[in-house]
């Protein structure tokens, strides 16, 4: 049977639709299964004590409060360092950098930094911050290490977000007599804020979940008190999971899955918050 062009086109269309639909369903399915599974395994371990108590019996009992606080400290430290530096870097690349080979080199370097394995950052952090700079294993050294890892993500996201802003908008500010700096600061950056915030949340979420960069730079197996400053060592959620599973015989399944659940829930909550803020902020755009 010979098919007309039209019929063939319709069949192709149907096949393409089915393939794309399957791919999308697969991705959503895997992600959904993962989250549900973590919730299913993790929720039984949750309790008020789990969230507020220190680990007892090498982590088999008690809670994860110091690890939760430690992770928040380190992510906060990373954010304080990464956000201004990353935004400045992105603004420079998008708004100020000349179109030259050296700029292209910088961009390439930033892109490559994003691809460096996290354990290499850990090693670098140990050599540079802990030893060479003499900071020692601490919240500060770990934050600096995580900053190196997160910075390219934020720089790239900022640059991309700024590039989305139409030239007309910049020209309108310049045509009103605004300087370049004022144009960027008052018009371009606010317009690009949703994209930049997305990049920041993604970068910090990754920082919160990484074990390798903090492994040698400040995370410890167990602490009964909270870190008392940037010079202090700390517990962290991902590292807690790692040490429980690798070095505690008869580790408590419920508590470790509970820790994983808290980590995922915290990161998801941050992403969700950013998404809500974006949709609140994103109006009918004029461009």
């Amino acid at each position: 049977m010979r098919l007309s062009r039209r019929q063939r086109a319709r069949i192709f269309e149907a096949v393409a639709r089915a393939l794309l639909g399957t791919a999308a369903a697969l991705v959503v399915g895997v992600a959904g299964f993962l989250l549900l599974y973590i919730a299913f395994r993790g929720i039984p371990g949750l309790s008020w004590e789990f969230l507020t108590d220190v680990p007892r019996n090498r982590g088999r009992e008690g809670g994860i409060f110091p690890a939760l606080v430690g992770t928040l400290y380190v992510v906060f430290g990373t954010g304080v360092l990464t956000v201004p530096l990353g935004i400045l870097g992105g603004v420079y690349l998008s708004e100020y950098a000349p179109r030259s080979p050296s700029t292209r080199f910088i961009r390439l370097a930033v892109a490559n930094m994003a691809g460096v394995p996290s354990i290499v950052y850990g090693l670098f952090g140990l050599a540079a911050f802990v030893l060479a700079a003499g900071i020692g294993r601490s919240v500060l050294a770990a934050s600096l290490t995580l900053t190196c890892m997160t910075l390219p993500v934020v720089i790239t996201a900022t640059e991309e977000a700024l590039r989305q802003i139409p030239a007309d908008l910049r020209h309108a500010a310049l045509a009103l007599g605004a300087s370049r700096l004022r144009t960027v600061w008052t018009v371009v950056l606010p317009a690009a804020a949703p994209g930049i915030v997305t990049g920041i949340v993604l970068g910090l979420a990754r920082a919160a979940g990484e074990t390798a960069p903090i492994l040698f730079t400040g995370a410890v197996f167990q602490m009964r008190r909270l870190p008392d400053g940037p010079g202090s060592q700390f517990m962290a959620l991902p590292y807690h999971i790692y040490t429980q599973v690798t070095s505690v015989p008869n580790w408590n399944r419920d508590l470790v899955w509970g820790t994983a659940f808290i980590l995922v829930a915290t990161v998801s909550a941050a992403s969700a918050l950013a998404a809500v803020w974006r949709s609140f902020k994103r109006r009918r755009t004029a461009w």
Binding site: H171, A172, A175, L176, A191, A286
Partner: peptide
């Protein structure tokens, strides 16, 4: 540019309030 204003082909208001849009030039001054 304070003396020679420009209006563009496509409306390009700044992402801010009506008031702040109009006040942008004077504030720059």
């Amino acid at each position: 540019r304070m003396r020679v204003g420009q209006v563009f082909q496509r409306p390009n208001p700044f992402p801010m309030s009506i008031y702040d849009n109009v006040a942008y030039g004077p504030r720059t001054q």
